[in-house]
Design a binder for these strands. Structure first.
Length: 383
RNA sequence: GCGGGCGUAGAUCAAUUGGUUAGAUCGCAUCCCUGUCACGGAUGAGGUUGCGGGUUCGAGUCCCGUCGCCCGCG
């Protein structure tokens, strides 16, 4: 499947400009991928989404399978991806509500042993519990479900690890990921691009081994999983990227803070997805050039300015003020009236997509590194 | 003027027959959210219980006075 074309490579970094063609449209890369786990962006209508410069949306196999009954994805001209469900298997194993991210942070420590006692991993897949039910998901089933959901790009069912996992555990996980990758290739859906996933934790030799192994399989592109902080991302990408085929697209899974985006692009990543723009929008954290604001703060209830004057998003261009958004978001009946979340979502999504557009322009002019410095200096200056 | 009621965090209200460092919710503040079990989470700052006396080992709680607000009757 010849879906990806590189248009230009940055002179001063590994950043590259590309075009990803799918049945639904054309994706200019580097591109942010907006997360719509359940096959929709909560609180946004299709026409709302169109106004946010969104090119790609990623949904989740696990959620669509158990909750939405494999409903096919419908996003018009926006291209789609589905994640394999491999991540859920890990997060469900730790299951602390709102603390799922915790298993990702921290440094490897001989005294820390992660207990995956809520799941059972076999060579065929993973047994796990969800809402009191015992379930199984493996590479074959994941591929079948993903074919029914029908995204343009699907991911192989992999075994993600945590930075807290040992070398030995990562090595085993890697063997499973490789084995499952081959199974996924055999069950690849028609008219779908399949991306294999590189794992290996924070261990150089394992990462290189994984990149070489997955990189030589007949995948249409590659995902990189299991790196979670800015420093880890840069380090891991520098190990992996030289061993992946140049001409195929590379997706960094689950990454997307502002600082991380630049690290990823600089090191040769084409796409990456993250819940941050959408989740934080729903929680009232809004992005501006000078940093973020929490619109729920009392201060903003009297602030008649727009979120960001120079912003071209649907919310700011309609001159909707911070105080209006604040009032909507803090309204006790917001569970019925979700207009506030909608306005915040459109702003953040536009902000991230627009930032990527600027990044693409900077690469075209060989000015990516300068643009990175300027943008981060402004963004981290805060108010 | 007479009778009755009520005054407890910024707001709305709790506090067993008077009994330890007066609670809750919202609000406020700070921090957080990285392949979404996530319209969320964590922490924290705010009260000489209107004011002044009294009874008591001990008063937000009982008594007296005073101020303010509400209701009824004149």
């Amino acid at each position: 499947m010849h879906m990806f074309t590189i248009i230009k490579k940055d002179r001063n970094s590994k950043a590259r400009l590309g075009v990803l063609k799918t049945a639904h449209g054309i994706v200019k890369t580097p591109s942010y991928v907006i997360v719509g786990t359940y096959g929709q962006i909560r609180y946004l209508s299709p026409s709302d989404i169109k106004k946010t410069k969104t090119q790609l949306i990623i949904a989740n196999t696990f959620h669509l399978w158990k909750v939405a009954n494999k409903k096919p994805l419908k996003f018009g001209k926006i291209s789609t991806m589905t994640d394999s469900g491999g991540f859920q298997v890990l997060s469900l194993a730790f299951s602390d509500k709102n603390k799922a991210g915790k298993f990702m942070t921290g440094t490897p420590d001989a005294n820390t042993k992660l207990k995956r006692d809520k799941i059972k991993i076999t060579s065929n897949g993973v047994y796990f519990a969800f809402n009191g039910k015992r379930l199984f998901l493996g590479p074959e089933l994941s591929m079948k479900i993903q074919e029914k959901i029908g995204a343009d790009i699907v991911f192989a069912f992999d075994h993600i690890t945590s930075p807290l996992d040992t070398y030995a555990y990562n090595k085993k996980a890697l063997e499973l990921t490789d084995k499952w990758a081959k199974i996924c290739l055999k069950h690849k859906g028609k008219n779908q691009a399949l991306f294999g996933i590189v794992q290996g934790g924070l261990f150089k030799d394992l990462r290189i081994k994984s990149a070489k192994s997955i990189g030589t399989m007949t995948f249409d592109g590659f995902g990189i999983g299991g790196s979670y902080t800015k420093k880890q991302i840069a380090k891991v990408l520098k190990w992996i990227i030289p061993h992946l085929p140049e001409e195929k697209p590379r997706h960094l899974l689950g990454v997307g803070k502002i600082e991380d985006i630049f690290e990823a692009v600089e090191n040769g990543i084409d796409t990456f997805d993250c819940v941050i723009p959408t989740r934080e929008a729903r929680h009232g954290r809004l992005y501006t050039k000078k940093g973020t604001i929490d619109i729920r703060r009392g201060y903003f209830s009297k602030d008649k300015k727009v979120i960001e004057p120079s912003c071209g998003c649907p919310t700011c261009s309609k001159k909707i003020s911070r105080s209006q958004i604040s009032a909507l978001l803090k309204n006790p009946i917001r569970k019925q009236n979700t207009k506030g979340q909608r306005l915040c979502l459109m702003h953040n999504m536009w902000f991230f997509n627009n930032l990527l557009e600027k990044i693409r322009k900077s690469i075209a002019k060989n000015r990516f590194i300068e643009f990175k410095k300027k943008t981060l200096t402004n963004f981290l200056s805060q108010y």
